[in-house]
């Protein structure tokens, strides 16, 4: 167990707990965009930065990655911290002017758009938090989408912006996307995502279309359970 102070509050947390977790467990809110309880933290969005003090030295760290230590003093709202968060939000307001989520956080934190930043028109609502990519790789395990190029040209999508043959249409990426950038269109027996159409399978019992065939085949291959045995939706099981 580590004893530390967060925003003046004495806190005890198990060793290895990230500051973010320890703060939330104690009712201290730290804003984040790229953190998710079931996905390894990546420290990409930088909204969760906090200022830590060890002895005389203080520095800014990402609370989703930095772990609690004995004697650590954490300030989650110092002026330096707020300066970083204000910039991150102003940058995202300019990158993703269409994103309601970003606008809401900005309003909540009192951040206005920076008139010197021209608004981007080609980035949609994607903030490159990589939750979708990590879900696809680490949780689903298909690596259908990823991050290509680098710097300001970095984008999320399938390889060559076209080949989504690895995609099983599970929709986990759309589900986890914090800004609603990833579009998934659903008709009764068909689902469209990443430019590809997926045939949906109807439940053998209730007849409701509940999952893409490709996804069931993927699960079948991985688990050894036949597709026929997977053809009943969760509510009928």
């Amino acid at each position: 167990m580590a004893k530390c102070i967060i925003d003046g509050k004495k806190i005890t947390a198990p060793d290895g707990t990230p500051i973010l977790q320890a703060a939330r467990d104690n009712g201290i809110d730290i804003p984040t965009l790229c953190s998710h309880e079931s996905i390894e933290p990546s420290g990409a969005c930088r909204l969760c930065v906090v200022e830590i003090k060890k002895g005389k030295r203080s520095k800014i760290v990402t609370s989703c990655l930095y772990q609690v230590e004995d004697g650590l003093e954490v300030d989650t709202k110092s002026e330096r911290v707020m300066n970083v968060r204000r910039l991150v939000l102003a940058l995202l307001l300019a990158r993703n002017p269409a994103s309601e989520v970003i606008r809401e956080i900005a309003v909540k934190m009192g951040v206005n758009p920076q008139p010197r930043f021209k608004l981007d028109e080609d980035k949609g609502k994607c903030i490159l938090c990589r939750l979708c990519v990590r879900t696809c790789a680490d949780i689903v395990g298909v690596n259908a989408i990823g991050l290509s190029h680098r710097g300001p040209s970095k984008t999320v999508g399938p390889p060559f912006d076209e080949d989504s043959s690895a995609c099983i249409g599970c929709g986990a990426c759309a589900y986890v996307c914090p800004t609603g950038h990833i579009l998934m269109e659903e008709k009764v027996d068909e689902r469209k995502i990443w430019g590809r159409r997926f045939k949906m399978k109807a439940c053998d019992t209730c007849g409701r279309y509940f999952a893409p065939l490709d996804q069931l085949e993927f699960i079948s291959k991985k688990t050894g359970v036949s597709v026929a045995d997977l053809s009943i939706c969760t509510s009928c099981r």
């Binding site: 969005c45 970083v84 940058l91 991050l147 300001p152």
Partner: peptide
């Protein structure tokens, strides 16, 4: 590299 926002977006601005 484009991973974190301050560097990717901030330096560009």
């Amino acid at each position: 590299c484009g991973k974190c926002i301050p560097c990717r977006e901030g330096v560009r601005r």
